[in-house]
Structures are given as C-alpha cells and as structure tokens.
Nucleic acid binder design. Structure first.
Lengths: 227, 227
DNA sequence: ATAGTTGATGATCAGGCGATAAACAATCAT
DNA sequence: ATGATTGTTTATCGCCTGATCATCAACTAT
C-alpha cells in the first residue's frame, strides 16, 4: 500500500493566527499590486505568497475585497497625529518646523509602494484619493498657510483663501513630485532630499511673505472660494 | 432564393483613405486607453470604434503596436518649438514670458486624456517617461534657470546646477500637479488657472532671486551633479 | 488514540482575452 | 460588366482570469 506523503515538504513555519496570516497576505498583496497594478492576477499573487490561488478565497471573499484592504492599510496606517503638532508648535522657527515635517512626511510616502498604489487608485477614480486630498488640505496646507500668515505678520483671522491654499499646494506638489520622479519614473534626481526640501522651503517662505504681504488689496481677481 | 442583405445598414460615410482611417483608430484608441488603461480590451475598443474586433488587426499587427502609436501621438505631437523661443526672448519681461509659456504649455497637457496616458505609461515603467522628463529638463527647466540667473543679476556662465534644476522642478511640479488634481483626481481647485500660475511664478521668482543670490558660496552641501 | 475543526490543495467552470483564418462586401480599374 | 483589390465580418482557437467545490492535511481538545 502506498503511504500518503505530505504533498510538499514545507519549511517548518509556525502556524500564524488567522488574523496574522490575513495581515501577512494583505501586506504582501500590497507589494504585489503596487508592482503589477490591480490587474495583476490572483495566481501570480498566490505564487508570491507561496500558496495556491484558491486559498486566497478562504481569507477574502473576492479579489476586490482584498484590494479594499490594501487601500486601507496604505492610506490610513501612516498618517501620524504628531505631524499636526509639529506644524503648529510656535516655540520652533517656522522654517525648521516645515523642514522637520516634510522630512517626516516624505519618509513615509516616498516609497515605490506607496506612490504607485496612490496613482493606481487615482487612475481608477476612487473616492479615496479625493478624500486624501481633502485631508492634506485640512491637516497640512491650511495649517501651513496660517503659520505663514503669522510669520509674515499678516492678519490671521479668517479661513485660508482658495488662492493661499493653492500656493501651499504648489509647495506641497513641488516636494511630492520629487518623490514621483525618483520612485515612480526612476529618473535621476539630486539625491540630497534634505537640501531639496530646504531650498523649496526657502523659496516658498521668502516668496510667500513678499507676494501675499502686498496682496491685502485685490492684485488680480480676488480669490473667490470655489464651490 | 434568399437575397443577401448588407449585414448592417451602415450610415453612409465616405470611405476614408487607409492612412486617415488608421489615424482615426489611433485617436479614438487614445481616448479609450486613457479612460480604461492599457488593459482595456480590444473588444470594448472595437465597439467604441463602431467596428468588429478583428478589424483592428488589419491596421495594427498587435495590440502593443497600437499602444505604441498612441504613445507617439500623445507625447510627440504637442511639443511646440515656439515655446523655446518664448522662454528666451529677452525683449519681454521674464515674468510675462513664463506666464505665457506655462499658459500655453498647460493648455496642451492639462487634459484628462494627456495626463492619464502619462501616468499609465509611467506606472508601466516605460522609457518614454524618463525620456520626457529629460526633455523637460533640457528644453524648459535649464532655460528657466538661465533666465532666472540673468534676471537676478547672477553670473550666467556654466550649466545649471543640479540644485537649481531641482528648484525649477518644484515650480514645474507645483503647476503640473494643479492639473493632476483637477483632471485626474477631479478634486475641486481654484478655477482661475491664470491666477494659480501667476501666483506660483511670483513666489518662485522673488524666492529664487533672494535664495540663490546668497548661494554663490556653498550654503549647505555643494550641488553635485548626479550620476 | 480519536473526533472535530481549521488550513490548504487539485481539479474544474464559465467567461474574457488577444489573435487567426476563411468567407463575404464594397470599391476600383479596365 | 468583369476581375482584382481592399475592407469588414463571422467563427473560432488557445490561453488566462476570478471563482467554486470536494478532498486531503494539520493542528487541537478530549
């Protein structure tokens, strides 16, 4: 009689708890999808996990559900509450606060994984990107504007105008796209991130003060709120 | 005997020359792929063209060849030689030259179609994006830097340093990402593009002059060329 | 040891994909 | 009108995709 052998001499690995195993799947799926896009096949994904494809469906009811969990981990995990305090702590010079903040922020999002997932999701037209952009405006840019007003000796009352937020976006995007060029397009860049951020901040801060200081009266069209 | 009817009462449209028909296919394929991504199916594409799927293979040997032609039209068509002259015509004030240039440039690339194709291609890791980034540096940014040096009364000899190019990238990206937010993420933005560009230029020009004027000596690390 | 529960697999399904070949329709030259 | 040529469709191939189900293995509690 033929003895039934174990089908595969699996490396003896401790059996993880279901939640941990699930998390492991999500983590590796994130890497996988960030490379292949969300059209990557479940078979390739399973091979990467070292398991067979049907097993995925024991842990996730469908591919879409798995993808949703990938979004969640990528977008929600990294947002650090400490950043807000960092931005508004006026015991430190603004220039240094911003340098520290953008240093920390880009340490988190300047990875091939994060940036690629971000654009794959964006091209799919998911709300999650619009939501994220709203969070950036609320938690980062509006605070930057307020601190810049303070620094420039401008009146601080009133919400940031749409034009001011746009200017903060120019700074934000300028720094952000440095990461895009480096990690998505893999184009050669000036490697010293600290310097790039520092120079961007220097230009922005001196420029912002001078430009918006003379902008109490309407320079061009008054900055209308956008619906 | 059953008379053979024309299979479909096709709207009487003049038969186009093969080249024109081909161009028509490429144009509509560009729209299609910009929405669906390059994983969009040839059947869906054909339906959009109002023809059957195998017909595509009469005009293009494979789907990949069709896609390559899409790239060509998107990337190569729009680059306008006039832009270079616009940037370097010192009979005009720099501020106005840059305003005009970015106005014209963004008139071309700020479309859902262009931007989406750009990122789909970028995520695929195609050389064409790196090539495009190189073109931007050569044709736009290095000229911007030179003109800024001139404007700020700095010595003009020597190639732009890597740090200077990076600063021009911050401006470029800041404006570029305004279009990304609007046309890819479809996020609400300040609608007055002219003002956004204008403000970005004001901040950049005043900032650049002040920051790099004091930068003749090494401020932080000297800007080394990147390999 | 044995029964019960959870983890993982092999085989398979229906549907979609890119691509091909042969048949038919429309146009053009003579 | 006739034949040649080009444009278009129908039918189909092999392959890959997400998903399902029955089966077997591994671990746990008794």
């Amino acid at each position: 009689m033929k003895k039934v052998l174990p089908r595969r001499a699996r490396a003896k690995q401790k059996r993880l708890s279901p939640e941990d195993r699930r998390r492991e799947f999500v983590a590796k799926a994130t890497e996988f999808f960030s490379e292949e896009g969300f059209d990557g096949g479940t078979r390739d994904l399973a091979r990467r996990l070292g398991v067979t494809q049907p097993l995925l469906y024991r842990y996730f009811p469908s591919k879409d559900d798995l993808i949703k969990e990938v979004y969640r981990t990528v977008y929600l995990e990294p947002f650090d509450a400490g950043w807000e305090k960092l931005l508004t702590d006026r015991s430190q010079p603004l220039r240094e606060r911003l340098q520290e903040f953008y240093q920390a922020y880009t340490d988190v999002i300047f990875t091939r994984k994060w940036l690629r997932i971000y654009f794959y999701a964006g091209l799919k037209g998911l709300d999650i990107n619009r939501w994220y952009i709203g969070v950036v405006e609320d938690k980062i840019l509006s605070r930057v504007v307020r601190e810049c007003r303070h620094e420039a000796g401008l009146p601080e009352q009133g919400e940031p105008t749409a034009a001011e937020i746009e200017m903060a976006w120019v700074l934000q995007s300028g720094i952000f796209y440095y990461g895009v060029r480096k990690y998505i397009f893999e184009s050669p860049v000036l490697e010293d991130k600290r310097q790039v951020i520092g120079d961007a901040l220097d230009v922005f801060l001196t420029g912002f003060a001078r430009v918006f200081a003379t902008a109490t009266g309407p320079r061009r069209a008054p900055a209308k709120a956008v619906g």
